[in-house]
Simulated scan of single mutants.
Amino acid sequence: MGDIGDRRVHVVLPDGHVLDGQLQARRRDPDGRWWYGVTVELPAKAVEPVPGKDYSQVPTTVQEHWPWLIQAPAAPGEAPVLHVGDCAAATGRLEPVQHAELARGALVDSWATVCDVCRPAP
Results as ranks from 00 to 15, higher is better:
Met1Thr: 15
Met1Arg: 10
Asp3Ile: 03
Ile4Asn: 08
Ile4Phe: 09
Gly5Met: 09
Arg8Ala: 05
Arg8Leu: 11
Arg8Cys: 06
Val9Gly: 00
His10Lys: 07
Val11Asn: 01
Val11Gln: 00
Val11Ser: 02
Val12Arg: 12
Val12Pro: 01
Leu13Asp: 10
Leu13Ile: 06
Asp15Ile: 13
Gly16Lys: 12
His17Phe: 15
His17Gln: 15
Val18His: 03
Val18Phe: 02
Leu19Ile: 02
Asp20Met: 01
Gly21Ala: 10
Gly21Gln: 06
Gln22Phe: 13
Leu23Ser: 00
Leu23His: 04
Leu23Lys: 00
Gln24Tyr: 06
Arg26Glu: 13
Arg26Val: 04
Arg26Met: 13
Asp29Gln: 06
Asp29Thr: 10
Asp29Val: 08
Pro30Cys: 01
Pro30Leu: 11
Pro30Asn: 08
Gly32Ala: 05
Trp34Asp: 11
Tyr36Trp: 00
Gly37Met: 15
Thr39Glu: 12
Val40Trp: 09
Val40Phe: 04
Val40Thr: 10
Leu42Cys: 15
Pro43Ser: 11
Ala44His: 05
Ala44Arg: 07
Lys45Glu: 12
Ala46Pro: 06
Pro49Leu: 05
Pro49Met: 07
Pro49Cys: 04
Val50Cys: 11
Val50Asp: 10
Val50Leu: 13
Pro51Lys: 03
Gly52Trp: 06
Gly52Pro: 03
Gly52Glu: 03
Lys53Tyr: 10
Asp54Tyr: 14
Asp54Gly: 05
Tyr55Glu: 03
Tyr55His: 03
Ser56Arg: 05
Ser56Ile: 06
Val58Met: 09
Pro59Ser: 08
Thr60Tyr: 04
Thr60Lys: 14
Thr61Ser: 13
Val62Met: 12
Val62Ser: 12
Val62Cys: 09
Val62Arg: 12
His65Met: 07
His65Pro: 11
Trp66Pro: 01
Trp68His: 04
Ile70Trp: 01
Ile70Phe: 01
Ile70Asp: 02
Gln71Lys: 03
Gln71Trp: 00
Gln71Phe: 02
Ala72Ser: 11
Pro73His: 09
Ala74Trp: 15
Ala75Lys: 11
Pro76Tyr: 12
Gly77Lys: 05
Ala79Ile: 05
Ala79Tyr: 14
Ala79Glu: 12
Pro80Asp: 05
Val81Pro: 06
Leu82Trp: 01
Leu82Ile: 03
Val84Ile: 14
Val84Gln: 08
Gly85Asp: 14
Ala88Asn: 05
Ala89Phe: 11
Ala89Arg: 10
Ala90Pro: 04
Ala90Val: 03
Ala90Gln: 08
Thr91Ala: 02
Arg93Ile: 01
Arg93Gly: 00
Leu94Asn: 01
Glu95His: 00
Pro96Trp: 01
Val97His: 00
His99Glu: 15
His99Val: 08
Glu101Gln: 05
Glu101Pro: 02
Leu102Ser: 10
Leu102Cys: 08
Leu102Gly: 05
Leu102Phe: 10
Leu102Tyr: 05
Gly105Cys: 12
Gly105Asp: 11
Val108Ser: 10
Val108Phe: 12
Val108Ile: 14
Ser110Asp: 15
Ser110Tyr: 14
Thr113Ser: 13
Thr113Glu: 15
Val114Arg: 11
Val114Gln: 09
Val114Leu: 04
Cys115Arg: 08
Asp116Pro: 12
Arg119Ile: 09
Arg119Asn: 09
Pro120Phe: 02
Pro120Ala: 02
Ala121Pro: 13
Pro122His: 01
